[in-house]
Every structure is written in structure tokens, then in C-alpha cells.
């Protein structure tokens, strides 16, 4: 029974992890940018939903589309005005500029929002349902469902629309995509905007199930990085699967080994997987 409970906790947590990593994997695969500011975008999305909830009284789940819209615009402009300068350039350039962006966003958030812990606490935050002795927190269940929904929508966008086809084509062969009329700068900006919107959604859900501070981004970037590598950069559904693996491993580790071991487990798993299947895991989209 305890094991089943851990499994449920891990799956619910893992779905959210998967959503966090989706945007990072997308941007990495298409733009070849390892976005170290991805966690900071998650953090900003969390604050957006927090203030929509506490300031305007909008239910956090209803606030998600608004936060996503805002984050899309932010991400689009960021790519157009700044990141297009380094797109598909040397890895070090992308790491430097996105690290700098992470620092700026973190300290602007600290200045604007203070360093206080914030949690998004709607009336149903503490509600649970119990099924066969397993407790399922409703807010986590809802967050999990939204994460799956968004992953499914991203899959549909990438695989069933003209825009998605162009995004994948650009990721696979930039020369040929340009040859047939794809305008990469515009496409990169839209892609980064989608990545930022997904980060924003993840942040809002994270604020519902945990607490937000300006500094939460760093560890979420690391986690997203691990999951993106495990899940691969090609398929949103396998990224969510990667999230589930990490979620289950972490919740088992924190019970059997203690909560401090959670990160050891996720990075340990990364090393194991890279050793075991380096070709598949590191294949760039």
C-alpha cells in the first residue's frame, strides 16, 4: 500500500516535471539553445498566476491560459530581440547568454516580488480523495491532468499542423527548410514563445502544489535538463514519460533514503542512462 502511494505521488509529481521539461526540450531541439533561464521562466509563470489569483481573484487553473499568453509574448520578444543573435551558434554562447538572462530575471523578480515564499492556495488546495487507501490530493491530480493535456496539445501542434511541420523540419534540416521557404527567425521566435508559454503553465501549477521564490528557477532548470535528456528532444510524449521516471524515482528516494537524496537520484539516473544508451539519449532533434 505504501508503495502504491509512492507510485501515485511520483506519477502526479512526474507529470508536472514533464511539463516543466517540455518547453526546454522544444527550444533545445529546434533552436539548439540549452536554455539555462528556463527555470526562471517557470518562476515568472508562477508569479503571474499567483498575482492573478491573489490580486484579481482568478482561479489558478483559469489563470493559466492568461499566464501562458503573457509568457508567449515575453518569449517571442526575447527571441526576436535578443536570442536570435546567438541561435544555432556555439553552445558556449547560448549557455552564457541564457545564464545571464537567468541571473537578470532572478534578481528582477527578487526586487519586484521580494524573496518571500509564495503559495497559490485556492479553497480546494487541501482537498483529497481517497481511493482504495491511497490518498490523492485534488490540486495535484488537476495539475497532472493539465500537464498531460498540454503535452498532448503540443504533440498535436507539432505533428498535425503546418506550423508544427515547419518547426520539426527546421530542427531536422535548417538548410532544406530555408530552401523551401521557411523563415527561420520568425519560426524560432514562435517556438521560443511556445516554450515560454509551457514554462509559464508549469510555473502556475508548481505554485499550486509547492511554493515559489525568485530562486526556485535554478533547480527547476536542472531538473528540466535531466528530463529533456532522458525523454529526448523529439517527442513531447516521451518527455512526459521522462518526467514520470524522475517523479517516481524522486518520491521513492525521499521516502526510503530521505528527501535530501531526491536530486542525487535524478542526476544519478541521468548518468546511468547516458552510460547505457548514449546514442539515443543524446540524439539532437
Amino acid at each position: 500500500m505504501l508503495f502504491a502511494q509512492i507510485l501515485v505521488n511520483g506519477v502526479l509529481l512526474g507529470g508536472l516535471y514533464g511539463l516543466m521539461a517540455l518547453g526546454m526540450a522544444l527550444v533545445w531541439g529546434v533552436l539548439n539553445i540549452v536554455n539555462l533561464a528556463h527555470g526562471a521562466l517557470i518562476m515568472l509563470g508562477g508569479y503571474a498566476v499567483y498575482f492573478l489569483f491573489t490580486g484579481a481573484g482568478i482561479d489558478p487553473f483559469a489563470a493559466l491560459p492568461m499566464a501562458m499568453t503573457g509568457m508567449f509574448c515575453f518569449g517571442y520578444l526575447l527571441q526576436r530581440l535578443l536570442l536570435n543573435l546567438i541561435v544555432r551558434s556555439a553552445l558556449l554562447n547560448t549557455l552564457l547568454i541564457s545564464f545571464g538572462l537567468d541571473v537578470v530575471l532572478t534578481y528582477v523578480a527578487q526586487w519586484a516580488f521580494t524573496a518571500d515564499f509564495r503559495a497559490i492556495n485556492p479553497s480546494y488546495a487541501g482537498a483529497n480523495i481517497t481511493l482504495a487507501g491511497i490518498t490523492v490530493p485534488l490540486a495535484r491530480l488537476a495539475a497532472f491532468a493539465v500537464a498531460l493535456l498540454l503535452a498532448g496539445l503540443l504533440w498535436l501542434l507539432l505533428n498535425r499542423t503546418r506550423l508544427g511541420r515547419a518547426i520539426r523540419a527546421t530542427a531536422q534540416n535548417l538548410v532544406a527548410a530555408r530552401l523551401y521557404g521557411v523563415e527561420p527567425r520568425q519560426l524560432y521566435a514562435v517556438t521560443f514563445g511556445i516554450g515560454a508559454a509551457l514554462a509559464g503553465a508549469a510555473g502556475g501549477l508548481y505554485g499550486v502544489v509547492a511554493q515559489i521564490t525568485p530562486y526556485v528557477g535554478t533547480s527547476l532548470t536542472a531538473k528540466s535538463f535531466v528530463i529533456a535528456i532522458i525523454g529526448g528532444l523529439d517527442n513531447p510524449l516521451s518527455v512526459v514519460l521522462g518526467g514520470l521516471v524522475i517523479g517516481i524515482a524522486e518520491s521513492a528516494a525521499s521516502l526510503y533514503l530521505g528527501p535530501t537524496y531526491a536530486d542525487v537520484i535524478s542526476f544519478g539516473l541521468l548518468v546511468l542512462i547516458l552510460v547505457a544508451r548514449p546514442a539515443r539519449s543524446l540524439r539532437m532533434a
Binding site: R162, N173, A176, Y180, D234
Partner: peptide, 14 residues
Amino acid sequence: QLFARMSVEENLQM
């Protein structure tokens, strides 16, 4: 210069 991991049909659509 094909899009190697897209289907033949998708390549044509591109």
C-alpha cells in the same frame, strides 16, 4: 537534404 525523421508525405508537404 531530406527531413530524415519526417515521413515521405510530410517531406512532400514541406
